[in-house]
């Protein structure tokens, strides 16, 4: 792999349906919300993701699995341009959200991030009250409706309302880890996103809190499209409809870790009958 950035011209994706033929080994439903084609991501001169072509189906849960360092989180952060915050990160290739070219200079990452929300690995409520945690994002985005109603609705949607309704003025940091994570989900829901990106949302939680978050995800997918990065293969299997298995590219330049998509299939098929030998090796625990 040459360290020099290839000149890939991003072609705007006119049809948001993602109906173009995709390479073999991928099998996606027809309505894609987010899709990438030949996406490459660079950190400085190091290629972190290569030739990523994936289409995220609407109102489904898509899991990204794979060994550590293979770029799962990097891919997730491409979807809401979070990698912009890293000065050395660059991307080439095509990435579209509802027909909008995400990689174009005209796309405003700030307004994009309201439509594509994110939940992080470590619960990170603001050091503000529970109420303010939920209301903050809505307020900065100019929400004009009834804020009390929005806060209650978001907390109910995140299955947290009954636990916190009597202490909305307490600090969000006083909650337990699992409650904090549901507060972060409520905060994300309050700005009315279309897609929710989850970066290992349960890795800092105990099994009971994890189960609650997983139930919540299942409940939310009727309204939202969810993409989840997880280290936990059981979790991917339990929660997701589609699974992409990422792998480290054996042909990567020495000393660099480059992630590629080994297989992207419906979750049932990927775990019971993987097409790619590396996927099989990973899900059976032989590598990773």
């Amino acid at each position: 792999m040459s360290p020099i950035m290839p000149e890939v011209k991003a072609v705007p994706n006119v049809s948001s349906g993602g109906a173009e033929p995709l390479p073999a080994g991928t099998d996606v439903p027809s309505t894609a919300v987010l899709s990438t084609r030949d996406l490459n991501v660079w950190y400085g001169i190091s290629l972190a993701l290569r030739d990523i072509t994936i289409a995220i189906p609407r109102n489904q849960i898509t899991a990204l699995i794979g060994p550590s360092g293979c770029g799962k989180s990097t891919l997730l952060r491409c979807f809401n341009r979070m990698n912009d915050l890293i000065p050395s990160a660059r991307m080439t290739g095509e990435i579209t959200f509802e027909g909008l070219d995400l990689n174009s200079a005209e796309t405003d990452p700030v307004s994009l991030r309201r439509r594509i929300g994110m939940v992080f690995q470590k619960p990170n409520p603001f050091p503000k009250s529970i109420y303010q945690n939920v209301a903050w994002g809505a307020r900065i985005n100019g929400y004009r409706g009834d804020m009390d109603e929005l806060v209650e609705r978001s907390l109910r949607r995140a299955a947290l309302w009954d636990e916190v309704k009597d202490k909305l003025n307490k600090s969000g940091l006083d909650l337990s880890g699992g409650q904090q994570q549901r507060l972060c989900i409520a905060r994300t829901l309050a700005v009315d996103p279309e897609v929710i990106l989850m970066d290992e949302p349960c890795s800092a939680l105990d099994p009971i809190s994890t189960a609650r978050v997983e139930d919540l995800m299942d409940d939310l997918k009727s309204e939202y499209t969810i993409v989840i990065v997880t280290h936990n293969m059981q979790q991917a299997r339990r929660t997701s409809d589609m699974t992409a298995c990422l792998m480290l590219d054996d042909g990567a330049q020495h000393g660099h870790r480059t992630g590629i998509i080994a297989e992207f299939s419906p979750t049932d098929r990927l775990f019971t009958n993987p097409k790619d030998p590396r996927t099989e090796a990973y899900i059976t625990g032989r590598i990773g």
Binding site: N80, M82, L85, V110, S111, L112, R113, R114, G117, M118, F120, K122, N124, P125, F126, P127, W136, G137, I140, N141, C184, R187, T188, V191
Partner: peptide, 20 residues
């Protein structure tokens, strides 16, 4: 994490700096 959370909600750099 606090900055990322705020950016993730669609905050501008100035909002993140002064309000979070």
């Amino acid at each position: 994490g606090l900055r990322e959370a705020a950016y993730g909600l669609g905050a501008t750099k100035f909002e993140v700096s002064t309000r979070i």
